[in-house]
Design a binder for these strands. Structure first.
Length: 818
DNA sequence: AGAATGTCTGGCGTA
DNA sequence: GTACGCCAGACA
């Protein structure tokens, strides 16, 4: 195949161009591929079943209620994903399904996946288990809370429980009855015992403190939320999250409600073991008395126990919880304690089920996933409601949160997303929390110098543009620019291209980069505008934007786990994933010191530097998306490419083949061009969706509408490839992080993830050791967790290191010079 | 009436 | 080719 065929494609409508032979094979393979998901993606290359596109599409689109057909397709593979109808008692313990699946992996490596501790109640809870639980609870309550009312309530609950299956009409009554009762008894008594909705642990006596620690150890589930200074919590979508955290509210569940009854929808607040609710104040006061120190120690203990406890911790934005707790602990390496923290986050669960659902609030999720009888209690403005009402609301909301999360967990199982949730998304939570707490140092002086330099250059360019245009105008305004280019200068009439692209509802002529570059031979203005825009982008986003995000000379991004439909991470404030990789050259502004025609080189990444005694280490999955495509499509030519030319760069090899020139004559431009062609083929190609079980709801497309259909198919391919790459990158983060957390010596920190690149900050002395760990871990991901999930293609990792992010050199060089 | 604010869009950086 | 975030201008 020759390159010429493709060269002409770029920049034109690819769908109309005949595809190259490789592209055709890719398409063919993709079109014939079965639905790829967690269960059979390993097999997809072995058996390529011809399947009509419409039937595949249908099964992708199916959602709630209709997913039985999906299950039917893979009946044997649903380990740990019990269908909701099953009531057969299981002899196994609650977490059998999951741990069973992972045991092979755990034996193989000493890397612990948090999932081993993910002991969420199973659908198939045995009846006897239930009774045991009930007994345990009774015992527990008797022992710890010596209260007649509690006992009678307990009996009442029991009664409701035994009768509820036959008399569902009781449930509202039960709710009312019980709520009243709880209120009555929780309100009586003084603040030093666990009798209020919210018990402030600052005022506990020693005995109660011990009691609390005991309860923590024995709790079946913990439900937590952060409380802000204005009294709002994570559960109430308050306006801007401006106020800072003052404490943590924690509901201790002594008994786990079983999912079987949850699934029936027969469970109400009244039936559940309500649990004890405590408030942990964590705002550090400036005054430091002895009492405070004692309290601080106790709070630390409580929180430490929370992180370490064997039961799941349910939290609406679990990452923020972990981050806050770590901050309270102080940053003394305590992050190692959170490596196997299991936080059940309903937002993440809901996102896995429907990734297109942006960033729902707690209230949204409750409305979407729970029956109408549940509502989020929003306390009216702070002053109006008594603290007791507010506390009651928080108490109720935590119970609702618990219900919601349990519900979503069972939905995850039904959708076949449970394993993905447990092995990938949950262990990622503490990792992201630690990343958010990590600060990246910024060269502030250089940053400010650059800012003024760019500002001066922009001013020059603006004046130049005004001069060329013959009038003053707002250079950033596309409307004004359009008026000058096409109204005044009438450049569109001189353009060699027949029709320029239009934009907007009024079909205005576009002033995009493509248009301006095509016009730059006709008039000097477009070129000036282009340069202005480029520099302005760099200055406003990467220099000034970064400066605005800085706190005490450093930045740390906020990482969003649920922000994308493909499963990738996204970052904000600043978006470290989007910081320019390439440097720009600018002409020296006239009134700047230095030689006349001097140019400055500006590279935003260079301004991020490693801290003292540390070095950045970047680990990059080479061409991971193309490799995944090769694996998924099973295309022999692509597979061969990776297996044979393992040592060489794939794009260069392809360029060499296509252009029929020797490897050593392939230029950077050749390589970039090849890359562009390859990815336009990859994403413009065929079909299919999902990999490790990740799904994306696709719109139903009329078979006749070729254009929409093609669009949907491209989205599907993109989803599959990007999603799979995201899965692998997340897995890499998790494994490396747990290796570091369990290592007695390694202290390396994960700083950022730029999709297929991981950026670490490593102590100078640990670089070789850590680099070996990273390479080994990442390349071993070829075998994901069981033999069935084995990539047909080797994974390649390239390592580079340096003191600034902009100046990374291959690891060998970095070690040599150091 | 003019100022301030929120939402949308075009354009462009990353992968 | 898609999918992100951010900025500035336009407009309600």
């Amino acid at each position: 195949m020759k390159m010429e065929n493709c060269e002409t494609c770029v920049g034109f409508d690819l769908s109309k161009i005949p595809l190259s032979s490789i592209a055709q094979k890719i398409m063919c393979a993709l079109h014939s591929g079965d639905l790829v998901d967690s269960k059979n993606w390993g097999e997809s290359t072995k058996i390529v079943k011809p399947i009509s596109t419409s039937s595949v599409k249908d099964s992708v689109i199916l959602k709630d209620g209709k997913n039985q057909s999906l299950e039917k397709k893979n009946p044997k593979s649903l380990t740990g994903q019990t269908s909701r109808g099953s009531t057969k008692p299981s002899p196994h313990s609650s977490s059998t399904g999951l741990t069973g699946q992972l045991s092979a992996d755990q034996k193989q490596k000493n890397i612990s996946l948090a999932s081993s501790r993910c002991s969420v109640p199973h659908c198939d809870q045995e009846a006897s288990d239930l009774q045991k639980m009930e007994h345990k609870k009774k015992h527990f309550l008797n022992e710890n809370i010596n209260n007649e009312n509690k006992e009678s309530m307990n009996l009442k609950r029991k009664h409701i429980m035994y009768s509820n299956s036959s008399e569902k009409t009781n449930k509202y009554l039960a709710l009312e009855e019980n709520a009243g009762e709880v209120k009555a008894q929780l309100n009586s008594g003084d603040s030093r015992t666990f009798k209020k909705y919210l018990c402030d642990i600052r005022y506990l006596d020693d005995q109660s403190k011990n009691q609390l620690m005991e309860m923590l150890k024995q709790a079946a589930a913990l439900v937590v939320t952060l409380m802000y200074k204005d009294g709002s919590t994570q559960l109430i979508a308050n306006q801007a999250q401006t106020s800072s955290v003052k404490g943590i509210v924690m509901l201790l569940k002594s008994q786990v409600d079983n999912l079987e009854t949850l699934a029936c929808g027969a469970l109400e607040v009244g039936f559940m073991s309500q649990g004890q609710c405590v408030y942990i104040h964590i705002e550090l006061s400036s005054l430091w008395s002895q009492e405070q120190e004692a309290y601080h120690l106790f709070a630390r203990n409580v929180l430490f126990q929370t992180l370490k406890c064997k039961c799941p911790v349910i939290c609406f934005n679990a990452k923020d919880f972990v981050r806050i707790v770590l901050q309270f602990f102080g940053d003394d390496g305590s992050w190692k304690h959170v490596a196997d923290f299991v936080g059940l986050d309903p937002r993440i669960a809901a996102w896995l089920i429907d990734p297109s659902d942006g960033t729902p609030s707690f209230e949204d999720l409750v409305a979407k996933h729970l029956e109408k009888s549940f509502s989020v209690k929003v306390s009216s403005t702070c002053g109006n409601s008594s603290s007791n009402i507010k506390n009651k609301n928080i108490y109720m909301n935590l119970n609702t949160l618990y219900r919601l999360t349990m519900d979503l967990c069972s939905k995850l199982k039904v959708h076949g997303l449970w394993q993905l949730f447990c092995t990938l998304e949950i262990p990622l939570i503490p990792i992201l929390a630690v990343m958010e707490n990590h600060k990246i140092q910024v060269n502030k002086e250089e940053m400010e110098r650059t800012s003024t330099l760019l500002g001066a250059r922009l001013k020059e360019l603006e004046q130049q543009a005004h001069f060329i245009a013959g009038e003053r105008f707002l250079i950033m305004s596309n409307n004004q620019l359009r008026e000058i280019l096409f109204g005044k200068l009438k450049l569109h009439l001189l353009s060699p291209r027949k029709s320029l692209p239009k934009t907007g509802p009024q079909q205005h002529l576009s002033t995009s980069e493509a248009v301006l570059s095509s016009l730059q031979d006709l008039h000097p203005l477009p070129k000036t505008i282009l340069e202005y825009r480029h520099i302005h982008k760099i200055k406003s986003t990467f220099i000034d934007g970064l400066l605005a995000c800085m706190k005490k000379g450093s930045i740390s991004s906020k990482w969003n786990q649920t922000g994308t439909v493909t499963g990738r991470l996204s970052a904000t404030h600043p978006n470290i994933q989007g910081i320019s990789k390439h440097s720009i050259q600018i002409a020296k502004p006239l009134n700047f010191k230095g030689k006349e025609d001097e140019t400055f080189t500006i590279s935003p990444r260079t301004l991020l530097v490693s801290s003292r005694g540390h070095i950045f280490l970047a680990a990059d999955f080479s061409q991971i998306e193309l490799r995944i495509l090769a694996h998924l499509s099973g295309d022999p030519e692509l597979l061969k490419l990776f297996q044979e030319s393992e040592r060489d760069d794939v794009f260069s090899t392809l360029a060499s083949q296509w252009k029929d020139i020797p490897m050593e004559h392939v230029t950077y431009a050749d390589r970039e061009q090849t890359k562009k062609v390859v990815y336009s083929v990859v994403y413009g190609a065929g079909y299919v969706a999902s990999i490790m079980g990740r799904r994306r709801p696709l719109p139903r497309i009329h078979a006749r509408d070729q254009q929409l259909r093609a669009q949907a198919e491209r989205q599907a391919v993109n989803f599959m490839v990007q999603g799979s790459a995201a899965d692998l990158c997340k897995m890499a983060m998790i494994r490396i992080f747990s290796a570091v957390a369990t290592s007695p010596t390694l202290t390396a920190r994960l700083v950022a993830q730029i999709h297929d690149e991981l950026l670490f900050e490593v102590e100078d002395t640990q670089v070789p050791e850590f680099a070996a760990l990273v390479r080994g871990t990442m390349e071993s991901l070829q075998r994901i967790q069981d033999p069935e999930l084995q990539l047909q293609v080797p994974l390649k990792v390239s390592l580079s290191a340096g003191r600034s992010w902009g100046h990374l050199v291959p690891l060998q060089e970095a070690l040599g010079s150091a």
